[in-house]
Amino acid sequence: MRPDTPKTPNAPQPNQPKQHKQDPRFKTAHKEAWIGVALAIFNFIWWFGFAYGLGGRPVEEYTYILGLPDWFFWSCVVGFILMSIITVVLAKFVLTDMPLDDDRAYHPNPPNFHDQKGPNS
C-alpha cells in the first residue's frame, strides 16, 4: 500500500481492544471547538448590538469617536480590537499544547501503519 493512501479507520486491527476508547486528546479538542462556537456567538452579538442598537437612532443623534460614527466605532473598531485581544489570550493561556502525531501514550490502540509513515507526515 502506498504510504499516503488514507487508511480506513474501521478496518480491523490486530491488537484492537474490544472496547473502543476515545483518544484523550479529543476531549480537549472538543472543548476548544466549543470555545470557537461561543466566541463567534459573542462576536456576533457585540457586532449586531452596537451596529443596530446605536446605529438605529436618527443620524442627527450620532456622536463621533475619532471621527467615526459611534455605532461603527463600537461595533467594528472596538469589536475587532476586543476579538484580537481575546484570541491572543486564548492562544497564550487557554488553548492546550499537544502532539498531533499518533503516539502510543495517546492512541489507545497503536496504529499498525505508524512505522510506514515518512518523516514529514
Partner: peptide, 28 residues
C-alpha cells in the same frame, strides 16, 4: 467586518481533532 470571525473560527472549529485525524489517515 463579518469576516473577522474567519481568522479564529476555521482553526478553532476544525482544530486539533482535524489535524490529528488527517495525520492518522495520512490525508493530503
Amino acid at each position: 467586518m463579518t469576516q473577522v470571525v474567519t481568522g479564529y473560527f476555521v482553526l478553532l472549529i476544525l482544530g486539533k481533532k482535524f489535524a490529528i485525524l488527517s495525520r492518522r489517515y495520512d490525508a493530503v
